[in-house]
Amino acid sequence: MKVAIVKYNAGNIRSVINALKRLGIDPLFTDDADELRSSDRVLFPGQGEAGTTMAYLKTHELDNVIRSLRQPVLGICVGMQLMCRHSEENDTDCLGIFPTEVKRFQPLVHEQKVPQMGWNTIERLQSPLFRNINDGSFVYFVHSFYVPDNEFSIATTDYITPYCSALHKDNFYATQFHPEKSGKIGEQILKNFLEIE
């Protein structure tokens, strides 16, 4: 199976490569449109800031390439946020694959720290992406911005407010959490993604 990871100016994708290698996949790390289009699966991970990453995608014409992909695509963390319509982070227009907003967490009390950093549960799971995963499973999050609940939500998490922690529309999937850092649960989710019909 040919699996590609989108190469752009978002930090630390080493852990995604390592996680795929543990599943027996040696992924391509590329920004080449033909390579991305001809892959069986494309992963779009990322840590970073929406404005500068989105500007980079546009400059390198990766925005149109990602939007036009037909195979299963998985956005992770900032990758998921960039697949939405607009982010409050530096008032950034994003890819618009999911017609949703990305908002900043607004803590209600001092104990609610931003970013959310650590393990939280995913509930109301409804997708082949979560085959063999139980509601209430813990996965690893690091983020300051979130996607509110919406019609494309396939998982919900509660931090400050209940919000959408995974998305699905057509061939596009996305998780706010890091499956590559979520132990055996995350490994199963990545495996499910590789096996999606």
Partner: peptide, 8 residues
């Protein structure tokens, strides 16, 4: 460690 470990 990074190659083997699936937690942060």
């Amino acid at each position: 460690v990074a190659a083997e470990l699936s937690i942060p």
